[in-house]
């Protein structure tokens, strides 16, 4: 074998890996590339740290892939049914709420109208009572103040002249009316 042929073989060995080497390179098994009496381990028999972590969060136990698929389909269907039921309930709720709103709005409008009328009447009565009370109270208080003020005056020196003037004015009114 010439030197050029050796170099070619070496380059071939370096840049063109064998089929076994290619298949083992995808696994984490360090012995996958080894030949155990011509039986090559093609499956990854060693548990990786990643798979351990995956097992930690796996709540399905020792379920096969097909079982998982079936369950996943079942669960998916359940979820789908749930969403359908919930959407149905939602539509019923929406319909109910629309009906309720319609009825309630009608009732509320009627009720508001009745209240408006009632409130108007009440407010009118309240205003009337308030005005009546305040005006009466005002005049009564004013009159009481006047009487108590005159009651503290000297009858001869002060009240007598006021009395005379008021009586003369009254008599004048009487004459005018007559």
């Amino acid at each position: 074998m010439s030197a050029i042929e050796k170099v070619n073989q070496l380059s071939h060995r370096i840049f063109n890996t064998s089929k076994n080497e290619q298949s083992t390179s995808r696994t984490s098994n360090p012995f996958a590339a080894s030949n155990f009496q011509k039986n090559i381990l093609t499956e990854d028999v060693f548990e990786s740290s990643k798979s351990k972590e995956a097992n930690k969060v796996n709540f399905t136990g020792n379920l096969s892939a097909s079982s998982k698929r079936i369950y996943s389909v079942f669960v998916g269907s359940i979820n789908d049914i749930g969403s359908r039921i919930s959407s149905g309930i939602e539509s019923i709720k929406a319909f109910g709420s629309r009906m309720k709103e319609g009825i309630v709005n009608t009732c509320v409008n009627t009720w508001n109208k009745i209240h408006e009328i009632g409130n108007k009447e009440e407010s009118l009565n309240g205003t009337k009572e308030l005005l009546g009370r305040d005006i009466t109270t005002f005049f009564v208080n004013k009159r009481e103040r006047e009487i108590s003020k005159m009651a503290n005056m000297n009858p001869h020196m002060e009240v007598k002249s006021i009395f005379k003037d008021a009586l003369q004015a009254l008599e004048a009114d009487m004459v005018q009316v007559a």
Binding site: R143, E146, I147, S148, K149, M150, A151, N152, M153, P155, V159, I162, F163, A166, L167, A169, L170, D173
Partner: peptide, 15 residues
């Protein structure tokens, strides 16, 4: 004026 006279008489009642 009658109300005024009435008030004066009332004040003289309590004076």
């Amino acid at each position: 004026n009658f109300n005024k006279v009435s008030d004066i008489i009332e004040s003289l009642t309590i004076n």
